[in-house]
């Protein structure tokens, strides 16, 4: 185990940020912490990077305790906080140089590790970090976090506010880093990024809802899930909410995702019910649940 977390709790004044969190990350694993803003992701990251001390529980990184052995952890991990903490008034190259220097290394010494990423921003190396696009900032921040060849990489919401193209490129880079043997803990509010991790923890309100592989989590979805469409979205939702057999109903893009209280729902009866309420162009078809469906199902309890 590269990272272990056992019964960690943390409160700020009256607000509980983390409640009795436990999980472990294997060496070389790409582990995702998936949850909305305020779920406690950043607090957990700060505890693991020794920036905060937990109220209760024990956590270790590379075998070092996060409270008593914090100096050893600070020497060995790479950390990319949310909001890409860079020096906005320094150029791309100056930022990277600075972070290399404070970790007692140079860009040249570890260039092979950051090369993949850095070549993409190298054409702009004399541009100030503040003038970069979100995607380029993100790549620079990752380069800075990697420059000292850390064993463990902590990435707190690295893709928030970044356009889809850069997000995709970013995840490709993470896969390549993982192949080089790095352990990566990454957090994201985007449910669609969960599938790119080896294992994920779904987290909300400071509690872990489930930990597993993304595949296993969607396979554990307890009920058959249906895509339903009709001519009027609002009427469709309100009608389904009033239907006696409804277990859950959530708008989902151009569809409504519906689950029934019964194990084998009666599609014809449901269709009749909706028609009766004046809806037309009704389609009901079975669909595969996504991580987001699983998250909502788990969060509902």
């Amino acid at each position: 185990m590269e990272i272990t977390v056992a019964n960690i709790s943390k409160s700020y004044n009256t607000v509980t940020a983390l409640k009795d969190i436990s999980f472990g990350v294997e060496t070389g694993e790409l582990f995702g912490l998936i949850g909305p803003d305020g779920a406690g992701k950043t607090t957990l990251f700060r505890i693991l990077t020794t920036l905060l001390t937990p109220d209760n529980g024990v956590a270790t990184v590379s075998g070092f305790d996060v409270v008593t052995n914090y100096k050893a952890i600070r020497n060995s991990v790479g950390y990319m906080p949310g909001r890409f903490s860079l020096y906005q008034d320094l150029t791309v190259e100056e930022n990277l140089n600075f972070f290399a220097t404070i970790f007692g290394t140079t860009i040249d010494a570890n260039y092979d590790l950051v090369k993949d990423i850095y070549v993409q921003i190298e054409p702009f190396k004399n541009r100030r970090a503040g003038k970069l696009s979100g995607g380029m900032k993100q790549k620079l921040a990752l380069s800075c976090a990697l420059i000292h060849k850390p064993k463990v990489l902590f990435l707190d919401e690295p893709t928030t506010g970044v356009d889809p193209v850069s997000r995709k490129e970013f995840w490709d880079m993470l896969k390549r880093l993982q192949n080089k043997g790095m352990t990566i803990l990454v957090s994201t509010p985007y449910m669609d990024e969960a599938a790119l991790c080896d294992r994920i923890a779904l987290i909300q309100d400071g509690r872990i809802l489930e930990i597993n592989t993304p595949k296993a989590i969607t396979e554990h979805f307890p009920k058959p899930l249906y895509n339903i469409r009709a001519n009027n979205m609002y009427l469709l939702i309100t009608s389904l909410q009033k239907y006696q057999h409804t277990h859950s109903v959530f708008p989902f893009g151009e569809y409504v995702h519906y689950t029934d209280k019964r194990n084998t729902p009666d599609k014809t009866a449901l269709s009749q019910y909706l028609k009766h309420l004046g809806l037309t162009e009704i389609t009901i078809e079975k669909t595969k649940p996504t991580i987001e469906d699983s998250f909502m199902e788990l969060a509902k309890k």
Binding site: G35, P36, D37, A39, T160, P189, M191, Q204, N232, M233, Y234, L235, I237, F250, P251, F252, E292, F295, M296, A299, K300
Partner: peptide, 19 residues
């Protein structure tokens, strides 16, 4: 950044207004 359920409730409100 909001959680998935709240987000759906938000979209329900939008649908209602559009309706």
């Amino acid at each position: 950044g909001v959680d998935p359920i709240t987000r759906r409730q938000f979209w329900e409100m939008i649908y209602k207004a559009a309706h």
